[in-house]
Design a protein around this nucleic acid. Structure first.
Lengths: 102, 102
DNA sequence: TTTATCATTATATAAATATCTAAATAATTA
DNA sequence: TAATTATTTAGATATTTATATAATGATAAA
């Protein structure tokens, strides 16, 4: 298991996570959103997968990558721990950030 | 402003953040918790400060570093956004993680 | 079974990073 | 003012990282 902190330190990889938030995608699909080559995307995906931030699903010759939301939640708790939170202000903050679409 | 994501990708720097969670400290104090030298600590602190994750307060010949909780909360929202959260499960998760002391 | 398509791995290289020792700066104390 | 203490900056080096091109592997289609 590689470090998820190293994994998310790269701008391109955080962009990939944001892409996958919208929908599951193949490497080729993802590469169309960037300037760099397919091998580069492949390596970014390997790093994200090895740090458990995304999941891989093989379907025929395709590979479909998706977010691992459980891991995102786990990472979140590092920052939550930094903060002397209470749930009211947490809710207010999250709602101001306009995250969470329900 | 440097990237806070690069800043937290280093194990030692995350350790420093966890130390500062307990109390504000000077570089010398912090360095006693690690194997590496004071110049190395100084550079880590500069990186954390330049990415807004910690705050610096000059008092005489001392420099006192403290967590910037607002920034921690901001970082948290990246992961919150990954996650199709609802507040009930968020509370349960955070409480299981035993973070937040109130 | 040959060819095309989707994807990863190998190899090389340039850039960024962590950390050391030594030197410099800044404030305090004798 | 000189010596001491706290900290940062400079310079050097070894390691890690991102990404390109070329080669390989795996599945599907002709």
């Amino acid at each position: 298991m590689e470090s998820p902190w190293k994994a998310i330190s790269d701008d391109s990889r955080r962009q990939i996570l944001l892409l996958l938030k919208e929908k599951d995608m193949t490497p080729t699909e993802i590469s169309k959103h960037f300037q760099f080559t397919l091998p580069a995307v492949s390596i970014h995906l390997r790093i994200l997968k090895n740090s458990d931030l995304i999941l891989e699903n093989k379907v025929g010759k395709y590979r479909i990558y998706s977010l691992n939301k459980a891991k995102a939640l786990e990472m979140m708790s590092f920052f939550a721990g930094m903060w002397d939170y209470n749930l009211k202000s947490l809710r207010e903050f999250l709602e101001n950030q306009k995250v969470g679409k329900r």
